[in-house]
């Protein structure tokens, strides 16, 4: 589904990713872990199509298509979703309006008619329930005045509404209390199936207790330096990243 080959990325002359390779298949959950500044958020932003980053080398393919020259919205229409570490507040735009526009723009891009209002409403109600969200959410401006937990739940709610093929969760666990973490993780698990894939970017093990990864990758100094199963995450939680750094020096 996702094939990243030898990806090198700079921002304002600083090399952040330095030849990163990653492959993900349908039905898989991958966790990307690594110390601060390793390039985790850069990776997610570049896959989603953020323009500020300069790709100096390598390729990203999604379902056999080169997506490097695509605008963020085109990537979204292909089924790539990025849950933000810091979701943006958009005063004056209600969650309902926003999600409706997002869904219908995606449908338009794939030559589908707008989703009938009835179906949309029903889907919204279902997903709201899944994420244990208050009804008043829908009429509030996106993320405006939302607590940290509400913002993250709103991200997963949007993911649920948009049914992406690839969901990238960038530090979705940061700023969540135990209950919110459980709700968010439960939401992701329910959405997970054999036809989609999830990339979880995180510092900590705790989200991975709830969403069990098939692969754990360690991103260090712009490259994936180690790949393992869920036990790798446990070892990182236990021992930190020093041993990775030691290994890299050798």
């Amino acid at each position: 589904m996702l094939k990243i080959k030898d990806l090198s990325v700079e921002i304002e002359g600083n090399k952040i990713l330095k030849g990163l390779n990653l492959e993900m298949n349908k039905g898989e959950v991958h966790a990307i872990m690594g110390p601060n500044g390793a390039g985790k958020s850069t990776l997610s932003a570049v896959i989603a199509g953020r323009e500020e980053y300069e790709v100096t080398g390598g390729t990203i393919e999604f379902e056999e298509k080169d997506i490097m020259d695509m605008a963020p919205e085109e990537r979204a229409h292909l089924g790539i979703f990025l849950s933000f570490q810091y979701p943006v507040e958009i005063p004056g735009v209600s969650v309902t309006n926003f999600i409706k526009t997002a869904i219908n723009e995606s449908r338009k891009a794939t030559d589908l008619d707008p989703m009938p209002a009835k179906d949309l409403l029903k889907k919204m109600r279902d997903k709201q329930e899944l994420l244990e969200m208050d009804k008043t959410f829908m009429s509030r401006s996106i993320n405006e005045g939302f607590s940290g937990g509400e913002k993250k739940r709103n991200e997963i709610f949007q993911m649920a509404m948009l049914d992406p093929k690839l969901a990238i969760l960038d530090e979705t666990d940061s700023g969540l209390d135990i209950d919110a973490l459980r709700i968010v993780a439960n939401g992701v698990n329910k959405l997970k199936n054999d036809n989609n894939a999830v990339m979880i970017i995180t510092h900590y093990q705790r989200l991975l207790d709830h969403i069990v990864p098939d692969f754990v990758h360690v991103l260090f100094d712009g490259k994936i330096v180690k790949t393992g199963d869920k036990n790798l995450a446990l070892r990182l939680e236990d021992q930190g990243y020093d041993w990775i750094k030691q290994e890299q020096k050798v």
């Binding site: 979204a76 004056g92 526009t101 997002a102 869904i103």
Partner: peptide
Amino acid sequence: ALFYMQTRGIPLKEAKAFLMFA
């Protein structure tokens, strides 16, 4: 905010209009 909307599939032009309208 524009990038955020784009990642949800809203084209840049519409995203701009949305923000201005808001």
